[in-house]
């Protein structure tokens, strides 16, 4: 994997998420009154659905990179060896389980979000 690709993905995804939050905030501020209809009309438009879907993909990418960094820092034979040597021998298994678990949760989370948005 490219170091700069991972680094850029995390930084740019955070900026894109920030822009989305500003966009949502500007919508809320610009409305005289927020009610169910104005809120659902806004979020049911194709553009906002598409944008929201994209943002949640960014959230999952951003979160997974962060979790990958945590996993490769703390779930190594060296770091776990500080706790217990027998645990350290299973570092690779623990790390892969950790990556798989959070990867799976990310997919489930994203699928659920896309289901809610589009169906």
């Amino acid at each position: 994997m490219r170091g700069s690709l991972i680094w850029n993905s995390q930084r740019y995804s955070s900026l894109i998420i920030l822009c989305y939050l500003v966009y949502i905030a500007s919508f809320i501020i610009s409305q005289d009154e927020i009610n169910f209809f104005s809120w659902s009309n806004f979020f049911l438009s194709f553009e906002v659905r598409f944008l929201t879907s994209f943002i949640f993909i960014m959230i999952v990418v951003h979160a997974y990179i962060g979790l990958w960094t945590v996993g490769t820092d703390y779930l190594t034979s060296r770091t776990l060896g500080f706790l217990n040597k027998s645990i350290a021998k299973r570092a690779k298994l623990m790390r892969n389980t950790y990556f798989f678990t959070f990867g799976f949760l990310g997919i489930v989370y994203l699928s659920s979000i896309l289901y809610i948005i589009w169906l």
Partner: peptide
């Protein structure tokens, strides 16, 4: 030599 995810980006 420094462009992998660990050497600098950690």
């Amino acid at each position: 030599a420094l462009s992998d995810p660990f050497s600098v980006y950690r």
